[in-house]
Write a protein that binds this DNA or RNA. Structure first.
Lengths: 167, 167
DNA sequence: TATTGTTATACTCTATAACTATA
DNA sequence: TATAGTTATAGAGTATAACAATA
């Protein structure tokens, strides 16, 4: 036999390691998958977390705006909200000003669950970024947000710019 | 209350912007999708590029090792290689040492196409990272690879460490 | 019996279209 | 007519299982 003196099996090509498409794509996928799996054992999806997080900051969102933020089709959001509503974490109410709209709000239970998921997600991120120290993590996040902001202005955080000098 | 003087529609929640899962996940997805679309107009997929890149550095790979690097199921690779082979970009040959194996090699035409795709991907990455200067891009890539390496040792680049002082 | 490449199948997302009730 | 939410359907992408050839 004498297959190969130096085990070349499954070693990573330089070109792909040098490629941001490859590295960023895979890293994003890995982290997402990791988070999805861990949330699933808690009975939630990543979207559940995102929806709750959105509602925590601005209650009474309409379904369309939630879907837009998550880049989700409105039809996909329906099932998500159904699940959250069944568990009593959110409430849908008709908007009296425009009876076509539903305004969605977080319940007290929803807030509690969000707090739980928040710490879970935080732990996942901490483990994922383990090799980086606090300063590097901040730098990484800053660079990512800069790029994200360039492609989607909604990522802009005016208050962060203002607060940059204070902390 | 006084609803919201500043149009709140589809604005991004702080918590999600602060979340690495959210930002990294979306950014990776965006870049990947962008690259896929642009490559598609050239008649290729992102996987095509990756396969060609792998073969350029180490010819005569076996299908299993290629699939492993790309985290692809071996059955998925079959169709990919079929497409590349039909276009005369790669060649499959039975390994005489182990007739179960197929060794895959790049043809001259495959090398030419890879060069084309390479510059295309490079351009996509450049555009994507437009807001960052050269130093920031390097830093970002460095951080990403550090994290990637932590989760998958094959991302380690011993030669880069060695070459760090020379160039 | 285990492994390589292959084929066939099933399942999960996501995208699209059609429907209702309101405007 | 257009829009918000909903439902139903279809497609792509991915994962799983079974198979033939070889070890």
């Amino acid at each position: 036999m004498i297959p190969n003196p130096i085990e070349p099996q499954a070693c990573m090509p330089e070109e792909l390691i040098a490629s941001d498409v490859f590295v960023l794509g895979r890293l994003g996928w890995t982290l997402k998958k990791q988070a999805m799996q861990e949330l699933e054992t808690a009975g939630f999806s990543l979207y559940d977390f995102s929806v709750l997080a959105i509602l925590a900051e601005r209650a009474r969102e309409t379904q369309a705006t939630i879907a837009d933020v998550l880049r989700l089709d409105r039809s996909q959001l329906v099932g998500l909200l159904d699940g959250l509503e069944e568990r009593g974490l959110v409430e849908r109410r008709r908007d009296p000003n425009d009876r076509r709209r539903h305004t969605v709000t977080l319940t007290a239970d929803g807030k509690r669950q969000l707090a739980r998921l928040r710490s879970l997600v935080k732990r996942i991120e901490d483990e994922f970024l383990e090799p980086l120290d606090a300063s590097d993590r901040e730098k990484l996040h800053d660079l990512l947000v800069q790029v994200a902001c360039h492609h989607d202005s909604r990522f802009a955080r005016p208050d962060e710019i203002l607060a940059a000098g204070t902390s």
